[in-house]
Design a protein around this nucleic acid. Sequence first.
RNA 1: GGUCCUUUGGCCGAGUGGCUAGGCAAAGCUCUGCAAAAGCUUCUACAGCGGUUCGAAUCCGCUAGGGACCUCCA
Length: 498
Amino acid sequence: MSDLKIYNSYSRQKEVFTPITPGHVGMYVCGPTVSGESHLGHARPYITFDVVFRYLQHLGYKVRYVRNITDAGHFEEEGREAEDKISKKAVLEKLEPMELVQKYTNLFHWAMDQFNTIPPSIEPTATGHIVEQIGMIQEIIRAGYAYEVNGSVYFDVKKYAANHDYGKLSGRIIDDLLETTRELDGQEEKRDRADFALWKNASPEHIMRWQSPWGVGFPGWHIECSAMATKYLGPQFDIHGGGMDLMFPHHESEIAQSTICNHTAPVRYWMHNNMITINGKKMGKSYNNTLTLTEMFSGSNPLLDKPYHPMVIRFFILQTHYRSTLDFSNEALKAAEKGLKRLWDAYEQLQKLPVDESATAPTQPALDQKVQQLLGELDDFMNDDFNTAKVLANFFELVPTINSIKDKVIESDAIGSETLLLLKTTMKTYMEEILGLRSVTEADNDKMKGVMDLLMEIRREARSRKDFVTSDKIRNQLAELGILVKDEKDGSMSYSVE
RNA sequence: GGUCCUUUGGCCGAGUGGCUAGGCAAAGCUCUGCAAAAGCUUCUACAGCGGUUCGAAUCCGCUAGGGACCUCCA
């Protein structure tokens, strides 16, 4: 089997993945800022890295997956009047800051559950790690790479850049940063405009504030990830993930802080997912073009033709490689919806197919071989920087074969029983365990099932009498309720609930 | 303005030197009481111009669109 290769944003090439500790992987992913509701764009990294998490485990690694909750406010816009994002919103909504944070954290968790993402191993909050952040800042000051001014602490980028590769991750040239012509207000505290805050003195209107060696204040944005990653994954860990838009300044700053504090480069493999766009433009709060996840699920936004099931969104995201931009459109979502239904229906039918216990030889060796080839390629696709799009393409190629066997268009022993078994198990592993897909339709309860079975039986009898008025009435009225009745080739009936 | 990325058939999207990815839509056929579903078939594209090469969607250059980051941002 091929080796797992990961595109490392830091080196800008695919590299064979080798964990620091054999058999174990430490992965950190930048989590949500819970000052507002998550939107479609936020869904991408969490679904992307959920699949990474799942696949690494599939490969046999024991993975510690850390994803933070940013619940401490930082600057709305650095340099301008300090506005703590969370405290500002709290005033508007007449809520306690932590009440607001709790509300959006709960909502986030609910949405992640809808997407069938596996919860991270550790989900640390920024507010719960103020002590660690202060400790890290102190260490950086001791090392001589940070300075205090009026109760705030800044990282000395120029000094760091003199003997470190600042800007490598984001492709930034330090001199350009230092010579930025753009005027920013309130930068006078910094020695240099490229410097960034590690700790910020809290003005009176800041509700979220903590005691520190430099007075009452709150941590800078970047330090929380460095502190929590170090605490739970060690000074150096394997994978750090997040959106591309975080490369600068967030991840670049993380590297600088951690490198000074821990005397080693913090991350082996940097992974960045691309953006979700809408009409070709990045979806983001500042663009005012976001679709929140609750809107996506309910369809309650003028941009949406209809509601979209969380699994449809998950599938939609996985149909594109994570490093490509993905453009939102109703057309694309509807196409994904239909595609997923076809794929999932075939998958469910496949699981119902009986497997001949005695190993049978394929009557169509070419088809048998084709199936084996399509299955054999899956791991290679995943190993090639998690190419879920290709994995799904192969499964779609298997759909006609599955349906043909089911409909007895081709004989059941066209492919050998061993191949059929392999198809069943591999598809189950991939669809459910690695890609994390699950049924879109509601699981019906026993009573509902009993009623449906009765209706199906009545309809079957009506049809056998050629009483099509009755059989059509049942089918049509169920259709109005969103239950689709299908007559199968063998005379049986099936139904699916939307 | 600086840095970087991108441009694939009606739409969405894989793909990095030779071998029609895949999905959705559309058309025809088969099956069917009628549907639906399913199956089969058809639709062979890579922004433009030049270059490298036996051969380019894939490498290089130029031109033209689009975008991201440079400030909070997934």
